[in-house]
C-alpha cells in the first residue's frame, strides 16, 4: 500500500460505454490525483454510476482505457480490480443482511480471498481492534452483534462505508452516500469521507449540494455521459453549460 509516485492515480482516457447503441458514457479524459477527493455531480442518468461501473470492472468500456496506479485495468476482471485496492459503495446500500454488523466488517478485512483460507483461523487481535474502533467512529458499536437487516438506512450506509474503510482499499468509489439520510447523518457521512481523504483516493457521487459544499473538494460535472465542467463547486455551478444542463432537466437550484 505504498503511495504512488505519479500524481495521477486514476486516468480514464477516451472511454465510452455503449448500451444498445445508447452512449451512457463518453469521457475523453478524467483523472484523479492520489489522496484526492473528487466529487462527481450531474443530473439523473448522466452516467455517474456507469463511471463507477467502468472503473470497478462491473462494466467493460466499449472503447478507451482505464489506468489505476499505472496499471491498465481496462480488461481486468472485477475481482482483480478489487484486489488492486478499488472498493465500492453502491448507490443502494448493499451489505450482507443475514450477517451481523461485525461479521460484515470481518468479511471486508483485506486478505483471505481464497476459499481454503476461510476454513480455519479467526481475525487477529489487531484486526479486531481496528474493526471495533471503526464501528465506534461510525456509531455502530452498540449494534455490532445485530443483523445488518435490522439497521436503519443511515446505519447501513455507514456500515458500507466502514467496510470500505477496513478493507484497505486505496481507491474508493462512493455512490450517493447521503441519499435518504437526515441532516445530522449527512454531516457525519461527510466528516467520515473527509477523514479518508489524504490516505485514500475517493470519488464521491452526490446530488445534495449542501453535502457537496461541505466536502469542499474539486467537482466534476457529468451530463449525458460527457464531462461538462471541472473545478471548484462555485466555478462549476456558475458554468453556463452546467446551469443549462440542470435547467434543461428541471433540476436547477438543487
Amino acid at each position: 500500500m505504498s503511495t504512488p509516485v505519479r500524481s495521477d492515480f486514476l486516468q480514464i482516457e477516451g472511454v465510452t460505454a455503449v448500451f444498445d447503441g445508447f452512449k451512457a458514457l463518453d469521457v475523453s479524459y478524467f483523472g484523479v490525483d492520489w489522496g484526492d477527493l473528487r466529487v462527481v455531480i450531474g443530473p439523473n442518468g448522466a452516467g455517474k454510476t456507469t463511471l463507477c461501473d467502468v472503473i470497478s470492472g462491473k462494466t467493460k468500456p466499449t472503447t478507451g482505457k482505464v489506468v489505476i496506479d499505472e496499471k491498465d485495468v481496462t480488461r481486468w476482471r472485477d475481482t482483480e480490480i478489487s484486489a488492486l485496492g478499488v472498493g465500492r459503495k453502491f448507490q443502494t446500500p448493499s451489505v450482507f443482511d443475514s450477517l451481523t454488523v461485525y461479521e460484515n466488517m470481518e468479511l471486508a478485512l483485506p486478505g483471505r480471498r481464497r476459499a481454503w483460507q476461510n476454513l480455519f483461523g479467526r481475525e487477529t487481535a489487531e484486526q479486531r481492534d481496528r474493526i471495533l474502533a471503526l464501528l465506534e467512529r461510525t456509531h455502530l458499536i452498540g449494534r455490532k452483534d445485530h443483523l445488518a437487516r435490522d439497521l436503519s438506512h443511515g446505519q447501513r450506509q455507514w456500515l458500507e462505508i466502514s467496510m470500505l474503510m477496513v478493507s484497505g482499499a486505496r481507491l474508493l468509489l462512493v455512490d450517493e452516500p447521503a441519499a435518504g439520510l437526515t441532516d445530522t447523518e449527512t454531516a457525519l457521512t461527510a466528516d467520515l469521507l473527509l477523514e479518508l481523504k489524504g490516505n485514500h483516493t475517493l470519488i464521491v457521487i452526490e446530488h445534495d449540494m449542501e453535502f457537496v459544499r461541505r466536502l469542499g473538494s474539486r467537482v466534476t460535472c457529468l451530463c449525458q455521459g460527457r464531462v461538462l465542467a471541472d473545478g471548484t463547486l462555485d466555478q462549476v455551478s456558475s458554468d453556463p453549460q452546467v446551469i443549462e444542463a440542470y435547467l434543461g432537466r428541471g433540476k436547477a437550484g438543487r
Partner: peptide
C-alpha cells in the same frame, strides 16, 4: 455483487 466487489 457486493461479495464480488469485496474481492471474493
Amino acid at each position: 455483487a457486493r461479495l464480488r466487489f469485496a474481492g471474493y
